[in-house]
Amino acid sequence: MPENSVTMYSLSTCSHCKSVKKLLDECTIQYEFTDVDLLKGKERTAILEDIKKFNPNCSFPTIIIGEKVIVGYKEKEIKEALGL
């Protein structure tokens, strides 16, 4: 089974985002993340438009695992989506 790609929209200061990063690191999952608070101007606007498509609330972390979108540090759901 091909592995699901993992992408996360996060904030550099957010505790829930840090928890997700820690969980993924501990499970040795490869993932890409964007700390949106560190972006400015057009780059930020463009990313926010992308996030809205997955999570209209535009809250963080927004995690995309394959086809599944998970909002927040929901350990059980994240692990399930990862097949762990």
């Binding site: 200061t13 957010c14 505790s15 840090k18 608070d37």
Partner: peptide
């Protein structure tokens, strides 16, 4: 540990924005 991490983030936001805005939200 979590509380101090959050307080540090608040302090970081104070330096960044001039006020202690929520670290878990996009300011």
């Amino acid at each position: 540990e979590r509380t101090f991490e959050l307080l540090e983030a608040l302090q970081e936001n104070k330096e960044r924005y001039g006020y202690m805005v929520c670290p878990c939200r996009l300011a």
